Amino acid sequence: MPKIVDHEERRRAIIKATWRVIARQGIANATTREIAKEANCSSGVLAHYFKDKADIMASAMRAAHNEVVERVAGTKLTGIAALREYMLECLPLDKRRRLLASIEVSFWGQAVGNKQLIAINGDELDTYQGRVRRRLVEAEAAGELQPGVNIDRTIRELHVLMDGLSVQAALYKGSASREEQVRMLDEVLARIVSKK
Rank of each mutant, 00 (worst) to 15 (best):
A176I: 01
F50Q: 02
N66I: 04
E157L: 05
A30W: 03
Q168A: 13
Q129A: 15
D152L: 10
D123T: 02
V69L: 07
I118A: 13
A58F: 01
M87P: 12
E9C: 07
L83V: 08
E180D: 14
I120K: 06
E89H: 07
E187Q: 15
D52T: 10
G26K: 00
A58S: 13
G122Y: 13
D126W: 04
N66G: 14
K196F: 14
D186F: 10
L158E: 07
R153V: 06
I103N: 05
G174Q: 06
K16N: 15
Y128D: 06
A101M: 04
R153Y: 11
E9D: 09
G44E: 03
G143T: 04
D94A: 04
A73Q: 14
A64L: 00
A60H: 00
H48F: 01
L83K: 02
R183K: 09
Q110N: 05
T18P: 02
E124P: 02
G148H: 05
R135Q: 05
A63L: 06
I35D: 01
Q146R: 13
V72M: 05
G79M: 07
P147D: 05
G143V: 01
A119M: 10
M61I: 07
K95Q: 09
A142K: 08
D186Q: 10
Q25H: 09
A169Y: 03
G26R: 03
A176Q: 12
M184Y: 15
V21L: 15
G164Q: 12
E104G: 07
D126C: 02
A73I: 11
V45C: 02
K196M: 15
V137S: 02
E187Y: 05
H48C: 03
D126G: 11
R131V: 10
T31L: 05
T154I: 06
F50N: 01
A141C: 09
Q110F: 15
L165W: 03
K196E: 12
R20V: 04
Q168N: 13
I14V: 09
E140R: 10
V182I: 13
K16M: 04
P2V: 11
R24S: 10
L136N: 06
A142P: 11
I151S: 03
R62F: 00
G148F: 12
E144S: 03
D152T: 04
I120G: 00
V68H: 07
S43A: 11
A17K: 11
N150Q: 14
R134D: 03
A111V: 02
E124T: 07
N114P: 13
A169G: 03
F107E: 00
G148W: 08
V193A: 09
R62K: 11
G122E: 00
R33K: 12
E34V: 08
V105W: 15
S175G: 04
I155P: 07
Y172M: 14
R134T: 04
Q146Y: 02
P147R: 10
V105H: 05
G26I: 10
L77M: 13
N66T: 10
E187W: 03
C41K: 06
S175D: 14
I80T: 08
G113F: 15
G74L: 09
R12M: 08
G79R: 12
